[in-house]
């Protein structure tokens, strides 16, 4: 299969798109043919959904010839914060019974 790893894709996307956060998950059990990627970058600002995806596709043009299944989520920092807030809101509720309030995950989590 392909020679690519999550780490390789994360580094390449961080470099090419100046991404402040990248998370690539290898869903192929290590054979490197299927990835799911989340990217947060200023480069997406003002872009349509199609343009955002095109940016990522072109950053990985070579790699996508070999990776046969690839899904992506692309956010600007603000969109990502909103997304994180929402998912944190769901995820944290059960652990906040002690009344310490919502703890928002930071990007480094």
């Amino acid at each position: 299969m392909s020679k690519y790893t999550s780490k390789y894709l994360e580094e390449k996307l961080a470099d090419k798109l100046g991404a402040q956060y990248v998370n690539a998950i290898d869903e192929s059990d290590g054979c490197g043919g299927k990835f799911s990627v989340t990217i947060v970058s200023e480069a997406f600002r003002g872009k349509t959904l199609l343009q955002k995806h095109r940016l990522v596709n072109s950053a990985l043009a070579e790699e996508l010839k070999e990776i046969h299944a690839f899904s992506q989520k692309s956010y600007t920092p603000e969109e990502w914060e909103k997304e994180e807030l929402e998912s944190a809101g769901f995820g944290v509720q059960a652990t906040t019974a002690g009344g310490e309030g919502l703890r928002i995950k930071t990007l480094e989590d």
């Binding site: 199609l50 995806h53 992506q72």
Partner: peptide
């Protein structure tokens, strides 16, 4: 006109 792939459809 291309709208996109599955990811974009899901997001829309």
């Amino acid at each position: 006109e291309l709208i996109g792939g599955l990811d974009i459809i899901k997001e829309l």
